[in-house]
């Protein structure tokens, strides 16, 4: 050990944070949280000893910060390997690299693309909830600030945003695979009521979390629109032959295009062949193509959003 042994819980947590420097921010948050749970429980279990005395035996029971950091690093690598989605087609040594076309359509075997689409659709709902909570909480906090319940209300509101931020992180990890915290941020050194409020006000993460919640409404609307338009546009082209057939035989009383038989109207651009049923395979091809592009787009948006969320929700 090249460092002095920690004499208090706060020192221990600071050393643990230093030992984990450079690791994923979410992993650090989890490790600090676990350590604090243990250390505080250990101190509480020995009311006859001082915090410094308890910390003295910590290195032999819980492990010193370096050891604990190493354990988190090792376990993280193993869990990542175990949770990785197995690749469907293992590329054996010496085999041809997959063709570009194959890679382009392989998006349909990537579960992240589907979950990203789902996330885009869901983000309208979550965006509305986050925006409403943030705006209501902020304006009530300001409005109630002069009253006695102002401060407890503000504390509760910030606490709520932290829980919501953790839940959003879990959702994003499930949808995009980006590592997000699995534990809330540890509340730091035990302080008085006022110190805690000042701490929350000066903590940049409090404000970036609120900014994320506010931004989620416009961003959620955008994602939802892109997802619905992408799916509807591709879907309508892919199912065009069925609509044409239904129209032709007047199934379901289908009268999609007026009284004429199967025609598409493209304004002034309406070549005759485009109006016949024989053009529908072309529509299907365009539909499949646009759906594939859309799936790539969705996966990309999912990844970008995960980075965006991480930068605002997780302390660096």
């Amino acid at each position: 050990m090249n460092r002095a042994a920690p004499r208090s819980i706060d020192q221990y947590l600071i050393q643990l944070r230093q030992a984990l420097a450079g690791e994923d921010a979410a992993l650090i948050q989890d490790a600090l949280y676990d350590a604090e749970e243990y250390l505080r429980a250990e101190v509480a279990a020995h009311p006859d000893k001082t915090e410094a005395d308890v910390l003295e035996i910590i290195a032999s029971t819980y492990g010193d910060p370096e050891e604990v950091a190493a354990a988190y690093r090792d376990t993280e690598v193993k869990v990542k390997a175990a949770l990785k989605t197995p690749t469907k087609t293992p590329v054996s040594a010496g085999s041809q690299p997959r063709s570009a076309v194959r890679q382009f359509f392989d998006i349909f075997s990537d579960s992240r693309a589907y979950t990203s689409v789902f996330f885009m659709l869901l983000s309208l709902a979550t965006g509305i909830v986050y925006f409403t909570v943030a705006v209501t909480g902020l304006s009530l906090s300001v409005g109630l600030a002069v009253l006695i319940i102002g401060m407890p209300f503000f504390l509760t509101f910030i606490g709520l945003t932290r829980i919501m931020s953790l839940a959003e992180g879990r959702l994003i990890e499930a949808m995009t695979g980006e590592r997000m915290p699995r534990r809330p941020v540890h509340p730091g050194p035990t302080q008085g009521f006022w110190a805690r409020i000042v701490g929350m006000l000066t903590d940049a993460r409090t404000w970036t979390t609120l900014a994320y919640f506010l931004l989620m409404l416009p961003v959620g609307i955008l994602y939802f629109v892109v997802a619905v338009v992408g799916l509807a546009f591709s879907g309508s082209l892919i199912f065009a032959p069925m609509a044409a057939i239904a129209h032709h035989f007047s199934w379901f009383g289908a009268q999609f295009w007026g009284t004429q038989d199967w025609t598409f109207q493209f304004g002034d651009f309406s070549p005759g062949w485009l109006g016949t049923i024989w053009a529908t395979p072309l529509f299907v091809a365009i539909g499949v193509l646009s759906l594939t592009v859309f799936m790539h787009l969705a996966r990309g948006i999912g990844r970008l959003h995960a980075h965006f969320a991480k930068s605002l929700l997780v302390a660096g």
């Binding site: 989890d30 490790a31 676990d34 350590a35 604090e36 749970e37 243990y38 250390l39 505080r40 429980a41 101190v43 509480a44 029971t61 819980y62 492990g63 050891e67 604990v68 354990a71 988190y72 090792d74 376990t75 993280e76 193993k78 869990v79 175990a82 949770l83 699995r182």
Partner: peptide
């Protein structure tokens, strides 16, 4: 070292061998 059991608990939970729930505590 007891510090090493926490990450393992989490990894077992991620592999769905354990389930977990959160309960508030007075001591921390």
């Amino acid at each position: 070292k007891e510090g090493t059991i926490y990450p393992v608990l989490r990894s077992l939970s991620a592999l769905e061998l354990l389930t977990s729930r959160i309960v508030p505590s007075y001591s921390g």
